[in-house]
């Protein structure tokens, strides 16, 4: 069943939609949640919550890209769980290391949405491989090894891509007026 049909089922309040979503995207959702949360149970709970949230939000929402819509929901739920579990970076509960992002993080941001738009614009000006590696790491939360395998690179190259893209992003955000003092 394609995503448009699943959305139509959701609009008709047909519970088969959730089953279709589960069959199609459960693995992907568990990967995203599992990348962020060290505990398997936490990840599974996040994914269950995501089905519920999709059910509640569609309608009225009618996402053009159901897959990304769902992934974003899972990611947000996982981050909220992460915050709930602990606010300390590098805690055992945190599967992805955030310390590597430290140099990119501006001191203060007025709007998360504007920051995301600025980073999107920055990424559009990077070549596909760098863009892909960055998003796989910091959006999907994939490990360096996972990225290396799927992109047919070695881990060292992936680490280099990330290092260089982070440096370029920092410079770009500085030029865009973000404060690093």
């Amino acid at each position: 069943m394609d995503n448009k049909e699943i959305v139509e089922l959701l609009f008709r309040r047909d519970e088969r939609a959730v089953e279709e979503l589960r069959q199609k995207y459960e693995g992907l959702c568990l990967r995203i949640a599992g990348n962020l949360l060290a505990q398997k149970e936490d990840a599974e709970e996040c994914v269950s919550s995501a089905w519920f949230e999709v059910w509640n939000s569609i309608p009225p929402a009618r996402p053009e890209d159901l897959r990304t819509y769902l992934c974003r929901i899972v990611r947000n739920i996982a981050i909220n769980r992460l915050k709930y579990n602990t606010a300390e970076k590098r805690s055992p509960a945190l599967a992805v290391s955030l310390e590597e992002l430290a140099d990119c993080v501006p001191a203060a941001v007025e709007s998360d949405r504007l920051l995301a738009e600025t980073i999107s614009l920055f990424l559009r000006n990077q070549d596909e491989a760098h863009r892909r590696v960055f998003i796989r790491r910091y959006w999907y939360g994939d490990t360096v090894e996972m990225i290396a395998e799927s992109c047919r690179m070695n881990s060292r190259t992936v680490a280099t891509y990330l290092f260089r893209t982070r440096n370029r992003l920092r410079e770009y955000l500085k030029k865009e007026g973000y404060n690093y003092d």
Binding site: D65, T68, L98, D112, E117, R132, R136
Partner: peptide
């Protein structure tokens, strides 16, 4: 802003970029 807040903000990246990142690499990305 903390690293986690930054990581959270990255969640707002454009849909097409997110989709592309998890699709099959093109020959350009070899």
């Amino acid at each position: 802003m903390t690293e986690l807040q930054f990581f959270e903000a990255i969640g707002g990246l454009d849909d097409d970029l997110v989709r592309e990142a998890d699709s099959r690499p093109s020959a350009q990305a070899l």
